[in-house]
Nucleic acid binder design. Structure first.
Lengths: 338, 338
DNA sequence: CTCTTCCTCCAAAACGTTTCGGATTGCTCT
DNA sequence: AGAGCAATCCGAAACGTTTTGGAGGAAGAG
């Protein structure tokens, strides 16, 4: 493995000069610089980022902390797309990304902060961490710059990216209202998830706008799980047969709801319309295809990485990025939709 | 950020002793060790892996090189599941994983080898790299230990994990034969993909076993793409109306074939049976649900990581891991299958 | 001719670890 | 009493970079 020292020897200059030549400093003669570059190439030199990171005290590496990188989470390709987006930006600006996940069966005793500090990541992106995760607090309180996805915390070193969940939910409900629905139920996620709270807010506001009443008991929590949403939908539909439409806080839950509807011998969308949230791959392959509020998850990852690196380099105006959502009309709400 | 030196000062010992105490060497008194550990904890010490990696000349980090970590590749969740598997094992043995991807729009001029050497990864896993990728050759020829997924190259420093693709294909075709099919077409991937070659071989062997003829022109390449497979299937079905079953080298292509069948006014599986390969998420959500040969992609990633780390630590007997596949019978071949 | 200034270059320190080769102490054997 | 030994500890070098603070010389200004 050739080092800067080898190059220095071969070129007959000091290692200082090699370093400065390779890093584009101006105080080295263009001719010697060229010679050094040639020799470096010829010797197949790669700088040692460990050594560099050690002295510069930064690694040009960011950590992506996700929870639930499991086999199951592949259904909901959220994590994956965010990851792809992060990876994209990070590649563009010549950073690297290291992945930390808490799914180890053998629970690691190390906290996120320790992971970050050991690996000397310059900053971190947190995805899929629950608001009540004890580590969240810890990371946020540490001095490690980080950006959160879908958790609204902001400080000197903390930023976040999210979508406009209130507006997203409104779009969904307005769509249902426009189709003539008056009895709309909602399957939400968790009580304490930020997005759930926001989507519920949007749900209420849209009902209010449309002069429709809001019934507390027409809202159920499905924990973002397909089966649980199915159960809840069955319960709601039997208890309240008036319901003609469901707004679900995730597509996976919407799929569960569609199963429930079919199971009760009713049809989607003729008897009961269903709209989801996320626009996961399955949404456009389900039968009937699922209407949904699309979030650009790739863009969320991309923007998160961009924001983080801007923060690291001290040129981030704001620490918040809010992305748009888009209504996708498909067969689960609009009959014969192509 | 507290260092080993701070601990030494606080404990009134040398940094050598601190290092040896923390790393569990025997030549340090149990009492001083405890004191050092206490102080370290109290000072909230995290070792600097950069410094450690520099002197030890290894980083406890492996690189995962994937190609095509794009928005689109989310459909086929192959990459993601492999990644999850790798991540799982890596977490268990306290390594880290850094992700390298070649999808940067701005093409990086850096090669994989350079990436690996700069980041001082101890080894690498390559996934989704095509056999004709120029970088493949380069990585394999370099002295960086690596394991390939679905590419059979073996050497002192190179290993691979794959599934038994010949047997997998046979299972699929046998299944069709058992259902009474005699005119079976195949939609393969690329000419030059290892798995395609193997699956074609299995296809032929299974036909031979069943005393069925093999027709070269009943095999088409769909490039692992849904649309292309759809086109090819339409062509085959119109040119050769005898065909009653398709074996596809990927689920995504099988979905395309199902679309083709429907488009021609025929039904799956009544008129034409379809079986895929991979068992992607979509397979069990499509209508009809898709029969397929399941590969445990998570396990592939897990085993790849395990193999690599065994190789790194010099305790790998063999450099090859071949995993099992499993036939999943669903509605696209078996009528009214539950 | 001397004083600046600019252009090139360099020696050495620093980053935080690990590890090699001893050094010191106190104890046990002959 | 001296040798031998085990148990503890430590100084210093090494890993491959970047950076600080200058040195040396040539050219231009006065």
């Amino acid at each position: 493995m050739t080092t800067i020292k080898d190059i220095a020897k071969a070129a007959g200059v000091s290692i200082t000069t090699v370093s400065r030549a390779l890093n584009g400093y101006s105080d080295v003669n263009e001719k010697t610089r060229q010679k050094i570059i040639d020799i470096a190439k010829q010797l197949n030199y790669s700088p040692n980022t460990l050594a560099r990171g050690l002295v510069m005290n930064k690694s040009k590496t960011i950590g992506l902390l996700v929870s639930g990188l499991t086999r199951e989470s592949a259904k909901d390709n959220f994590t994956f797309e965010v990851l792809a987006g992060v990876n994209q930006y990070v590649g563009e600006v010549d950073y690297d990304m290291v992945l930390f996940s808490t799914t180890s069966t053998k629970q690691r005793e190390k906290t996120y902060t320790q992971l970050c500090r050991e690996r000397r990541v310059d900053g971190a992106i947190l995805q899929g961490i629950r608001v009540d995760d004890p580590y969240l607090q810890e990371v946020v309180e540490s001095d490690i710059p980080c950006v959160l996805i879908d958790i609204p915390i902001e400080s000197e070193t903390v930023g976040y990216v999210t979508t406009d969940n209130v507006l997203g939910a409104k779009k969904a409900v307005r769509h249902l209202v426009e189709l003539g629905h008056k009895c709309i139920a909602m399957i939400n996620g968790y009580e304490y998830a930020f997005v759930s709270e926001q989507r519920l807010k949007g749900f209420k506001e849209a009902l209010f706008e449309a002069d429709l009443p809001f019934y507390e008991h027409w809202v159920a929590n499905g924990a973002f799980k397909e089966e649980q949403a199915e159960q809840e939908a069955i319960r709601l539909l039997t208890e309240y047969p008036d319901i003609t439409a469901f707004f679900c806080a995730s597509d996976l839950m919407a799929l569960g709801v569609m199963k429930a509807v079919k199971q009760l011998g009713k049809r989607v969308p003729d008897d009961v319309a269903v709209i989801g949230y996320d626009d996961i791959i399955l949404a456009s392959y389900a039968t009937p295809t699922l209407s949904t509020i699309a979030q650009n998850k790739f863009a969320m990852g991309y923007e998160a990485a961009k924001l983080l690196i801007q923060m690291l380099e001290g040129k981030a105006q704001s620490h918040v990025r809010i992305l748009e959502t888009e209504l996708k009309m498909r067969e689960s709400t609009v009959k014969n939709h192509k």
